[in-house]
Nucleic acid binder design. Structure first.
Length: 634
DNA sequence: CAATAGAGCGCT
DNA sequence: AAAGCGCTCTATTG
C-alpha cells in the first residue's frame, strides 16, 4: 500500500506508520510553533514529516490556517504617517487534524524501536518530540548535518536548504516558510514539511556511504554517541539564579551611568561611546575638541583602532582613555551577559531564561576542528572567574536545592597532546616527571634549575608554548611576554634547539598532509579529518596560514576527540540524578545530587581520565572539583 | 525595515 | 605574519 502524502485521519496515520515500519531506518523532521519555537525542550510541534525508502508523509497536528483568502501583501503604507504597517494575512479555517497526543501515541513503536532515526540536526528534532513521548527516543541515530560536516568541515553553510541546493540544484523555500510556519497556508506548509523529510532522507542516504568511503566510520560512531549524550543536556538546560542576575543588572547599570558621565567629563563633550568614528574623533582628533593622541594601531581597513590594545599605551596617562576602558568593560558585561539573558524591554531584547533555565545549544558540528561551538546563548565565552565580575557571571548557574556542581577540566591538555605527537624530548619527559610544563620549558630554554624559574621566565615559556601551538611569530611572542623583539627572536631560536622533536613533528605532519590527495589533510587521534586546500597555494601568505592551521587543527582536533569521548563515557556511566550541564573545550560541568557528590566526582573523573582514557603516551590528568558555584572551581 | 560588514571583545 | 568560536553595537547597503 502506498503511503498517504498528508495524514489527517487515524486510518491514514496507521497506513503511514505501517509503511515506515517496514523499513530499517527513517528520516523525520518537525515544524514547531509557539513563543519558544527554537527551544526544543519547550516548543510546540505542529507538524512531523517522515521519509524512508520509497515514501514520504507529513502529519499536521494543530496548524492554525487553511487557505489564504484575501491578500498576499504583508504590509501597507499608512496614509497619514507614510509608514509601513503589517497586514495580517486572512486564512480560511484549517482542515480537521489529529492531535499531538493521538499522533505521538501511534508513533511510539516507530521511535522506540531499533530503527535508525535520522534528522538534519537531530538533537533539535529528537528533543522536540521527546516531550510528547515522555522520554528520549533511543539510538541508533543518523544526522545528515553531522555527516555533511564530517565529509567537508570547511563548508560554510551546513543547513538543509544550502546542502540540497548544492547537491540537487533544488530550491524549495524561497518564502522562508520554515521560519514561521503558522504564518503560512496549510498546503504550503504541508509541501514544505514534506520536502524537509524527503530531502533529509535523500541527503543522508547519499552522505552516509561517503563517511565509510572516506574512512570516517570511527569518528562517525563517536559523533553519534556524542549526539546521544547531548540529548538530555539539551532537554534539561541549565538552572539560573535569576534574582542574582537582576541584582547584577541593577548594580552594573548604576556603575555604567557613573562611568559614562566620567568619560564625558574627562573628554569635555558628550558622544556615543559605542561608535568607533566618534571614539576616533575624541581620542585622536586635535585638541581641544579631541585628545590629540597618536594612533598606535590600525584596523584591517586602515582606520585608527580604538580597541583596548591600542589604548593600553595611554593607560594611566590619559583620563579619557582610563574612563573609557572602565566603561567598556562594564558595558560589555551588561549587554552581553546580563541583558542578553534577562532581556531588555527598552531595546527589545527578548529574555533567554525560561522557567529559570537557559538552554544553550552545543553544536557538535560547529567548528572546523571538531570542537563544539555554543550559541543562544554562547556559554563558552563567559568571563573567567579571576575577576569579581567574572565570578558574578559564572555564579548565575545555580544548582537546584540538594545538588552540587562538579567541574572537571583537563590540565594543559593541548600541550600534552603536543608532547604525545612529538613522542620524546623535554616536554614529554616533563609530563612524566610531573613537572609544571611551563616551568620545565623555561628551565630548558634558560638552562637553569626548575626551582630557579621565576614568574617572568615562566611567562615567556608559556608564551612560547602557545606560539608553537598557534604558529605565532617573534613579534607576537614579544607582545605577549612583554619582552623586546630581538629577545623574542632569540628565545625562539633557543626553543628550536632545545625541543627539536617538536619541530620535527610539525615538519612531518606537514609532509604527510601534503602527500594526501586530492586535498591535503590531517587525521586527529581518533581519525577526524581537517582538509587544508591552501596548503598547496602558490600565495605564500595563504600557504603559511594553512600550515599554522594544520598544526593547530591536529592538536585542537585531538583535544576535541578526547573531550567528546569523555562526554560519551560520562553519559554511559553517570549515576542516577547526574546531569551534564555544559562543556567548554577541555572542561565538563555536571549537576550531581549532593549525597552522592563524592561517587559522582569519581565517575566523572573516570570518564575523563580513567585507565581507558590514557590514549596518549603522556599522562592525561583531570582535576574534578565539587562546588556550589562555578566560580569556586578556579 | 532587513541584512550585512566592520570593529571590538568575551572564552579555550 | 596567532588557532578556533559567538554576540553586540554602529554604520552602511539593499
Amino acid at each position: 500500500m502506498p503511503i498517504p502524502k498528508v495524514v489527517t485521519t487515524r486510518r491514514q496515520l496507521k497506513e503511514a506508520i505501517a509503511f515506515i515500519g517496514d523499513r530499517e531506518e527513517f528520516a523525520f523532521d518537525v515544524e514547531t510553533s509557539g513563543e519558544h519555537r527554537g527551544v526544543p525542550a519547550l516548543n510546540r510541534v505542529t507538524w512531523i514529516s517522515l521519509a524512508s525508502r520509497g515514501g514520504t508523509t507529513v502529519i499536521p497536528m494543530g496548524h492554525p490556517n487553511g487557505y489564504q483568502t484575501i491578500s498576499k501583501a504583508t504590509r501597507r503604507k499608512d496614509r497619514a504617517t507614510g509608514k509601513f504597517i503589517p497586514v495580517p494575512a486572512v486564512f480560511s479555517p484549517p482542515p480537521d487534524q489529529l492531535t499531538p497526543a493521538e499522533v505521538f501515541q501511534e508513533l511510539q513503536p516507530l521511535f522506540f524501536s531499533g530503527r535508525t532515526k535520522i534528522a538534519h540536526n537531530a538533537v533539535f528534532d529528537l528533543v522536540s518530540v521527546a516531550k510528547y513521548f515522555g522520554q528520549i527516543p533511543p539510538p541508533p541515530y543518523g544526522d545528515s548535518i553531522v555527516a555533511a560536516w564530517l565529509i567537508d568541515e570547511n563548508r560554510p553553510a551546513l543547513g538543509l536548504k544550502p546542502l540540497v541546493e548544492a547537491r540537487y540544484g533544488l530550491r524549495y523555500d524561497q518564502e522562508g516558510v520554515g521560519k514561521r510556519v503558522e504564518a503560512h497556508p496549510f498546503g504550503t506548509v504541508a509541501d514544505y514539511a514534506w520536502m524537509d523529510a524527503w530531502t533529509t532522507w535523500l541527503l543522508y542516504t547519499h552522505l552516509r556511504p561517503q563517511i565509510t568511503a572516506a574512512g570516517l566510520d570511527g569518528v562517525w560512531s563517536l559523533e553519534m554517541d556524542v549526539l546521544e549524550a547531548l540529548l538530555p543536556m539539551r532537554a534539561a538546560g541549565a538552572p539560573v539564579d535569576v534574582a542574582a542576575l537582576e541584582r547584577l543588572r541593577d548594580d552594573l547599570r548604576t556603575r555604567i551611568v557613573g562611568a559614562e558621565a566620567e568619560v564625558y567629563r574627562a573628554a569635555g563633550r558628550v558622544f556615543n561611546l559605542a561608535s568607533n568614528p566618534q571614539r576616533q574623533q575624541v581620542l585622536y582628533g586635535p585638541r581641544p575638541a579631541g585628545q590629540g593622541l597618536k594612533p598606535k594601531k590600525t584596523t584591517k581597513t586602515g582606520a585608527a583602532s580604538t580597541d583596548a590594545q591600542a589604548l593600553s599605551t595611554y593607560q594611566g596617562k590619559n583620563a579619557v582613555v582610563d574612563r573609557l576602558l572602565e566603561y567598556q568593560e562594564l558595558s560589555k558585561i551588561l549587554s552581553t551577559y546580563v541583558e542578553g539573558y534577562l532581556g531588555n524591554e527598552e531595546s527589545g531584547k527578548a529574555s533567554r531564561i525560561y522557567n529559570g533555565r537557559i538552554y544553550p545549544t552545543f553544536a557538535q558540528y560547529g567548528t572546523v576542528t571538531g570542537r563544539f561551538s555554543s550559541y543562544d546563548p554562547n556559554i563558552q565565552n563567559w568571563p573567567r572567574s579571576d575577576s569579581d565580575i567574572g565570578k558574578a557571571i559564572r555564579d548565575i548557574i545555580e544548582p537546584p536545592p540538594g545538588f552540587a556542581l562538579l567541574v572537571a577540566d583537563y590540565a594543559q591538555i593541548e600541550l600534552r597532546i603536543l608532547a604525545h605527537f612529538a613522542k620524546e624530548g623535554a616536554l614529554w619527559q616533563g609530563f612524566w616527571d610531573g613537572l609544571d610544563a611551563h616551568v620545565a620549558t623555561a628551565s630548558t630554554i634558560f638552562g637553569i634549575a626548575p626551582e630557579d624559574v621565576d614568574r617572568a621566565a615562566r611567562q615567556i615559556a608559556k608564551g612560547m608554548a602557545y606560539a608553537i601551538l598557534y604558529g605565532a611569530g617573534a613579534q607576537k611572542l614579544a607582545d605577549m611576554a612583554h619582552i623586546s623583539l630581538p629577545k623574542a627572536s632569540h628565545f625562539m631560536r633557543v626553543h628550536e634547539r632545545a625541543f627539536p622533536e617538536i619541530y620535527a613533528y610539525k615538519d612531518d605532519l606537514l609532509r604527510t598532509a601534503r602527500r594526501r590527495r586530492p586535498v591535503p589533510y590531517i587525521k586527529t587521534l581518533l581519525g577526524r579529518h581537517r582538509r587544508l586546500p591552501d596548503l598547496r597555494s602558490h600565495a605564500e601568505g595563504l600557504r603559511k596560514r594553512a600550515e599554522r592551521q594544520l598544526v593547530n587543527s591536529h592538536i585542537q582536533g585531538t583535544n576535541a576527540d578526547i573531550t567528546k569521548l569523555a562526554m560519551t563515557r560520562f553519559d554511559r556511566t553517570r549515576l542516577d540524578g547526574m546531569q551534564m550541564l555544559l562543556t567548554v573545550h577541555d572542561e565538563i560541568a555536571v549537576l550531581c545530587p549532593q549525597e552522592i557528590a563524592q561517587e559522582g566526582a569519581a565517575v566523572l573523573y573516570d570518564a575523563m581520565a580513567g585507565p581507558e582514557m590514557q590514549l596518549l603516551s603522556v599522562p592525561l590528568t583531570t582535576d574534578v572539583k565539587i562546588v556550589n558555584r562555578w566560580s569556586e572551581a578556579k
